[in-house]
């Protein structure tokens, strides 16, 4: 059933909350050692529920999930020993200094005093975050708090990293340091990484495989390359209009006849067109719409975001706007339910 390199296997995983919300609907996911596996989808898509099922924190309504062959529902304690977890937000140990929180997490994970200190100091040096030694976590910037949590997840070199938005609030240099650390854990230590994100551009660069999740279902799964090849040889035109400028209905119709048009914001347009229509598209932008209305435009090959739009039928930004309220309601429900 489970090969030794299979870090996570979810089989027909379904979760219906007590309030009747269907969070996961027969999800099937395989994450292997040596892989960064991205879960991509808007808030409320069911990513966090899946992650918490992997951690043994939520019981599936039906279906199964194994971590290195161990049933997460039946043996959550064994599973937790194999996982380094970075939650999306954490309020635990916030009054402790960063270095203290890292130390106690190491000890609670079962590391010795000496080993915890060694790893803690090495990570603080590696990420150049000396300020987390002295300041309480709650006084650190969002980025520093994120890095402290990331170090807590890395402690003990767990064979499975479960990271929920690890680069939120980080500056570009530190983002890169985090991705490098994840790559190192995956490539050199043979760990697996289950990565939750809604940052499509970043995900594209770091993940080995990705699952697009929406409304509790996996709508598409594969390597980023294979996912993008579903779109054929299309080119994406991104167009920003000046403040106050808008497309006329005629201009919109013309653009729509050339390719697939999406408008995530009033001043921002996305158009995916076949390669042989790129020339006509640029002509249209420059002559019909004109530089007086166009703030900026960009051409690029198809991205995961385009795949997302193609499969889900709307952009990630649209999805987030629609579902942010629903997600907030679900989050507060989840938080209230634990311990009850």
């Amino acid at each position: 059933m489970n090969s030794p390199d299979l870090a996570v296997k979810a089989e027909d995983l379904t979760k219906v909350y007590r309030n009747g919300v269907l969070a996961n609907d027969r999800l099937n996911v395989d994450v292997r050692r040596g892989q960064v596996y991205g879960l991509l989808g808007p808030n409320g898509a069911g990513k966090s529920t899946l992650v918490q099922q992997v951690m043994g924190l939520i019981r599936p309504t039906s279906g199964n999930v194994w971590v290195f062959g161990v049933d997460a529902d039946r043996n959550p304690e064994r599973v937790k020993r194999m996982i380094g977890y970075l939650p999306q937000t954490s309020f635990a140990m916030r009054d402790l200094r960063g270095e203290e929180a890292i130390y106690f997490t190491g000890r609670l994970k079962g590391l010795s005093h000496k080993e915890t200190l060694r790893q803690r100091d090495a990570f603080i040096e590696q990420f150049e975050v000396d300020e987390i030694r002295r300041k309480p976590i709650m006084q650190l910037s969002g980025g520093m708090q994120r890095l402290t949590g990331f170090i807590m997840a890395l402690l003990g070199s767990p064979p499975l990293l479960v990271l929920d938005e690890p680069t939120n609030d980080l500056d570009p240099l530190r983002r890169r340091a985090v991705w490098e650390a994840i790559r190192r854990a995956v490539v050199y230590d043979g760990a697996a990484c289950l990565l939750v994100t809604h940052n499509v551009l970043e995900a594209e660069r770091v993940v080995d495989r990705v699952a697009l999740i929406d409304e509790g279902r996996v709508l598409g799964e594969g390597t980023p390359g294979a996912m993008k090849s579903r779109l054929g040889d299309t080119i994406r035109l991104e167009l920003w209009l000046r403040d106050g400028a808008a497309l006329t209905r005629a201009q919109e119709t013309k653009l729509s006849t050339l390719g697939t048009l999406h408008q995530p914001r009033p001043q921002h347009l996305l158009l995916r067109v076949p390669q042989d229509r790129v020339g006509r598209t640029i002509d249209l932008v420059l002559t019909e719409i004109g530089t007086e209305a166009v703030e900026d435009f960009r051409l690029a090959t198809a991205s995961l975001e385009d795949v997302y739009v193609e499969i889900v039928g709307r952009s990630l930004e649209d999805s987030e706007r629609d579902e942010v309220k629903q997600d907030a309601a679900q989050d507060s429900l989840n938080a209230e339910q634990i311990g009850n």
């Binding site: 939650p87 635990a92 140990m93 938080a335 634990i338 311990g339």
Partner: peptide, 17 residues
């Protein structure tokens, strides 16, 4: 206890072995 449940701190401890 009520606050840790609300803000997810218990969730973090529950994720540790």
């Amino acid at each position: 206890m009520a606050q840790s449940r609300r803000n997810g701190a218990i969730l973090y401890y529950a994720s540790l072995p």
